[in-house]
């Protein structure tokens, strides 16, 4: 069954016609051309499809699009400003926390959610927070270092 849903996407209200059996991931990638959100395992294990739902990271492959009516979604496309990257993206770049880049949109969004909730996470808390985002290049050390340095920067500020 088709229906029109309204939700906030990256800060802007969006109306889109979706089918009841479409996942949020399919709607983002195929209907809205927001291909920054990746399709990996498609069963909630890898975290490549991470988006923020009302500020919390979720697997968009396990979310029915019809269920996000009235809620707020942030994808990787909504993270950077018009002219510059987000500090999380800048730091991931600087620290070499990117290899092939497939997990990066999910990692960045999970990091943003973590730092919004806990500005000074311990190494264990960082590992726990990104445990649902699998890096197929296994570049975790650099990713954890990048998140740690972001937390330190926030401390200074």
């Amino acid at each position: 069954m088709e229906r029109t849903i309204e939700f906030v996407l990256n800060g802007e209200t969006k109306k889109v016609t979706v089918n009841d059996n479409q996942t949020l991931l399919e709607v983002l990638r195929e209907k809205l051309d927001l291909t920054g959100t990746k399709k990996g395992c498609n069963q909630g294990e890898c975290g490549a499809c991470t988006v923020l739902l009302d500020g919390k990271p979720i697997n968009s492959c396990l979310t029915l699009a019809v269920r996000i009516e009235g809620r707020s979604i942030m994808t990787i496309e909504g993270v950077a400003g018009k002219e510059s990257l987000d500090p999380v993206q800048e730091t991931f770049n600087e620290k070499g926390a990117i290899q092939c880049g497939f997990c990066t949109p999910g990692m960045v969004l999970t990091t943003k959610a973590l730092l919004a909730e806990n500005s000074n996470p311990t190494s264990a808390e960082i590992k726990e927070a990104i445990s649902g985002n699998i890096c197929r290049c296994s570049g975790y050390i650099k990713i954890i270092e990048a998140i740690q340095s972001l937390a330190e920067e926030q401390e200074v500020m």
């Binding site: 975290g47 697997n59 396990l62 445990s131 649902g132 985002n133």
Partner: peptide
């Protein structure tokens, strides 16, 4: 249970 991503749903 699972990962934080799963636990938020």
């Amino acid at each position: 249970v699972g990962s934080p991503l799963l636990r938020s749903q």
